[in-house]
């Protein structure tokens, strides 16, 4: 059954595959520092895709509370025309902002797909799409 791990000391990781998707900074996006943009977890009160709060004091030093004006629209008014500020490390990452937004995508909640599938596992619409032979 394998070796039990609870008696082992923690093992800091030093090597890790680089994620193949850009950070917000690499995508030239803005970030809400004073209001946060977290999601809820079990036991937490923050609902999914809403704000939970990240204070400026928590933010690392290379992130600056800017002189930028507040976002007058209050939401979604992101600078989509801003040029991505990719650096060498991000050079191989696709320009995500070149993709037109989906009119159908929703930010919070599930789309109304009718009644829940109360059969609990019968006639499911979601299926696996890739093989499981490329696991790390």
């Amino acid at each position: 059954m394998g070796k039990r791990l609870a008696s082992n000391a923690p093992q800091p990781r030093s090597l890790f595959p680089r994620p193949g998707y850009p950070t917000l900074a690499a995508a030239g996006l803005y970030l809400c520092l004073s209001g946060g943009c977290e999601v809820g977890q079990a036991g937490s009160s923050a609902p999914p895709f809403e704000d939970a709060g990240t204070s400026l004091a928590d933010v690392q030093t290379d992130v600056t509370a800017s002189e930028n004006p507040p976002n007058p629209a209050g939401d979604f008014a992101l600078p989509f025309d801003a040029a991505p500020t990719s650096d060498a490390a991000d050079a191989d990452i696709p320009d995500v902002l070149a993709i037109p937004p989906s009119p159908d995508a929703m930010i919070e909640g599930a789309p109304d797909l009718g009644e829940p599938n109360l059969a609990g596992g019968v006639a499911l619409p979601y299926v696996r799409t890739t093989a499981n032979d490329d696991l790390p």
Partner: peptide, 12 residues
């Protein structure tokens, strides 16, 4: 990444 009530959007 939308601003919360009273928050501002800030660029990295």
């Amino acid at each position: 990444y939308r601003a919360a009530d009273g928050a501002t959007l800030t660029r990295l």
